[in-house]
Nucleic acid binder design. Structure first.
Length: 418
RNA sequence: CGGGGUGUAGUGUAACGGCUAACAUUCCUGAUUUGGGAUCAGGCGACUCAGGGUUCGAAUCCCUGCACCCCGACCA
């Protein structure tokens, strides 16, 4: 897109009411707009990043058998009463509202009930299982204290997948696959090296749940981790005297263990029959016996993930997006406004579009310094500069966001870099 | 929800209880510039979060509310 048509502008200074690095950089770059505490709108650039992340997650979920759908935001009170999670004394961060006829509805804060209830309509035989539906969705939680920019909001966008398996064995097979898929996601968005599969407290049906914790000072969790063996344990679990025996089964090398703050970018959980029981979600096995479905849940917060990437990958000049989540593949920056330069840049812009390469074209008549500062702040990984100087040699200047040096090359060569 | 802090042009800041609320930036006009947020000249833009009180006089002091930030609790 042409930058002259992008209505957002960069700012020199971050608003005084944002102290987190992610919010400061994202607001300065024109990625997000704060509505109220913990609630942000995603501007064109920000939406591009969310879409990139969404697609990576979608690909990885589909690869392990996930089926995308969309559950409603408004939730039926009766459904939630079945699992005893409607009562404000049980769940205190519901957003609830009233219908004209006086009935009450809630705004989803999670999805187990909706999925269990829907699947009950369709699952009746062992032939119907396993099944792995998921959705991307806005989630609402009336947090007592939202914080850290987009890391912990009252409204946020997440992916939630639920696994419905015949039994624990089948469940565990998928659970392992999901763990690998999650690792792929975090590797692809560029934070894999700092993200640990972390043991956390489980529930009735398993000793542990697993969190994907990314080591980062902005995090609100503390993990104990063994860098060598890529193992980690959440502090809550580590400190719990009841779990001492369990921890010994993990064969972590205590001498290598470090303690650091971390951001929970994803988690996976064995639910067992916790929800299939209240919803009477059963199937007939080969012998015709009624059997409870065995469930698991798998979540990733997309906004939080985007914020984590910014926290980790930025420098004094701005954001440094990894290739896979950058709002554009290349930032084409035109310097100067003489006719030859403009037509050279316009042609390059058209060529890039023809090749389906996503390009942000800075066609504004501004001074070089301002354009470079904007470009660094926005953080697209590759920059093409076209100016009178480069056009005289019929070349393009190519610079990576992570590198200080640039290189002059022919347009065809430059395209190959992307 | 407990504790602490802060609310002043779009943004960042200043202003002793006292003159027309100042400066920078953004934006608009013009000139000179044109490879790392240029320079000069001019201009627009604020009933100082809301409501009440003290005072001859309040952005400034007091009370109430609201909003935002931070620490803690919570995070099924």
């Amino acid at each position: 897109m042409r930058q002259s048509q992008l209505f957002t502008k960069t700012r020199r200074e971050a608003p005084a009411d944002e102290t987190s690095k992610n919010a400061q950089l994202l607001i300065r770059g024109g990625y997000i707009h704060k509505e109220i505490a913990g609630v942000y709108s995603y501007l064109p650039l920000g939406l591009n990043v969310i879409k990139k992340i969404e697609n990576i997650i979608r690909e990885e979920m589909n690869a392990i058998g996930g089926i995308e759908m969309k559950t409603s935001v408004f939730q039926n009170k009766e459904i939630w009463e079945k699992s005893n999670r409607w009562d404000d004394n049980v769940v205190d961060n519901w957003f609830k509202t009233k219908l004209k006829n006086g009935g009450e509805v809630g705004l989803s804060f999670t999805n187990e009930e909706a999925y269990s209830n829907i699947l009950k309509q369709y699952v009746s035989s062992y032939k119907d299982l396993p099944v792995y539906p998921y959705d991307f969705k806005e989630i609402f939680r009336n947090e007592a204290r939202s914080k850290s920019g987009i890391l912990r909001g009252r409204e946020f966008y997440w992916k939630a997948l639920y696994s419905f398996s015949k039994d624990e064995t089948e469940h565990l097979k998928f659970y392992t696959k999901a763990t690998e898929a999650y690792k792929n996601v975090f590797n692809r968005v560029g934070i894999g090296d700092k993200t640990y599969v972390t043991y956390a407290s489980g529930g009735t049906f398993s000793k542990f749940s697993h969190e994907f914790q990314t080591v980062c000072d902005a995090g609100e969790d503390v993990i104990y981790f063994d860098e060598e063996n890529k193992q980690a344990v959440n502090k809550e679990l580590w400190d719990d005297p009841l779990s001492k025996d369990l921890l010994q089964t993990l064969n972590m090398d205590i001498s290598l263990v470090k303690q650091k703050k971390a951001i929970e970018v994803g988690n996976i959980f064995t639910l067992g029959t916790k929800f299939s029981e209240p919803f009477d979600l059963k199937y007939k096995n080969e012998k015709g016996e009624e059997t409870l479905v065995f469930m698991g849940s798998y979540g990733i917060g997309l906004g939080r993930l985007m914020g984590t990437i910014v926290e980790l990958l930025s420098d004094d000049n701005g954001i440094v997006w990894p290739k896979e989540v950058s709002p554009f593949a290349v930032h084409l920056v035109r310097l100067g406004d003489n006719t030859e330069t403009i037509s050279f840049a316009d042609k390059l812009y058209a060529d890039l579009q023809k090749k389906n390469i996503e390009v942000l074209y800075d066609d504004r008549d501004l001074r070089a310094g301002e354009k470079f500062a904007d470009s660094d702040l926005i953080g697209i990984p590759v920059r093409f500069v076209v100016s009178d100087k480069t056009v005289a040699e019929n070349k393009v200047e190519v610079k990576k966001r992570t590198e200080g040096e640039s290189e002059l090359m022919l347009a065809e060569e430059a395209l190959k870099i992307l």
